[in-house]
Each structure stands twice: as C-alpha cells, then as structure tokens.
Simulated scan of single mutants.
Amino acid sequence: MAALAWLLIPLFAVVGAAIWGGWAARDRTTGDIAELAGYARFRDAMDRAHSERESV
C-alpha cells in the first residue's frame, strides 16, 4: 500500500502541472480591446488639453 502512495504523488504532480500549464497558456487578449479604446480616449483628451494650452 505504501508503494501505491509513492506512485500517486508523481501522478498528482503531473495532473497539477497540466492544470497549471493550461491555465498559464490561456488566451488573455479578450480584455485588450476595451483597454486600447480607453487608451485612445485618453490620448485624444491629452491632445485636446495640449492644443488648448498652445492657443492660450
């Protein structure tokens, strides 16, 4: 029975590594669209603020 326990430890490690590897390799590009749109609005606002200061 003890030998079976020692064989299960690497099995659990492999399963845990596979789960972690799948989670680490997931596609995380879905949130980039909203962030890029927010950054574009920020740049536009900064350009407007900069152009207003030059005209004053």
Rank of each mutant, 00 (worst) to 15 (best):
L8P: 06
I19D: 03
A45S: 13
E52H: 12
D44L: 15
E54N: 08
A37I: 12
T29N: 01
M46T: 10
H50G: 03
A2L: 08
G22V: 04
R48D: 15
R53I: 15
A5T: 14
E35Y: 03
I9C: 05
E35D: 11
F42M: 09
G38C: 01
S51Q: 15
P10D: 06
A2C: 08
A3Y: 08
W20V: 06
R41F: 10
L11N: 10
V14I: 15
D27R: 09
A18L: 12
D44H: 15
T29Q: 02
R41I: 10
G21E: 03
P10I: 08
A40S: 07
R28I: 14
G22E: 02
A5I: 11
E52A: 09
L36R: 02
Y39M: 10
W20Q: 05
L36P: 00
I9S: 01
R43L: 13
D32P: 00
E54W: 09
A40C: 03
S55K: 15
M46S: 06
I9Q: 02
I19L: 12
R48H: 12
A49E: 08
P10M: 10
A2P: 05
G21I: 02
D47G: 08
A40R: 06
W6P: 00
R48P: 15
A34Y: 00
E54M: 09
R26F: 06
D27P: 05
E52M: 06
R53W: 15
M46D: 00
Y39S: 08
E52C: 03
A18Q: 08
R48G: 03
G16C: 11
G21V: 01
A2I: 07
W23D: 12
W20S: 07
A49Q: 14
L7V: 01
L36K: 01
V56H: 14
H50F: 12
G31R: 04
A18R: 11
T30C: 01
A37M: 08
R41Q: 08
G31E: 14
E54R: 14
R26P: 05
A5M: 11
F42I: 02
G22K: 05
A24E: 11
A2M: 09
W20P: 03
I33P: 01
D47F: 11
A37N: 09
Y39G: 06
W6G: 04
D47V: 12
T29G: 04
A40E: 04
S55C: 01
A5Q: 04
A2G: 13
A24V: 11
Y39T: 12
W6N: 02
P10K: 11
E54S: 02
V15R: 14
R28P: 08
I19E: 02
P10F: 06
D47P: 00
F42K: 10
L4S: 09
L7A: 10
F12P: 02
V56A: 11
G21N: 13
G16E: 01
F42N: 02
M46H: 13
G31L: 11
A34N: 00
P10C: 14
R43S: 03
Y39I: 05
A40I: 14
W20E: 05
R41K: 13
A24P: 03
L7G: 00
L7I: 04
A40G: 07
L7Y: 07
M46G: 00
F42V: 00
I33S: 07
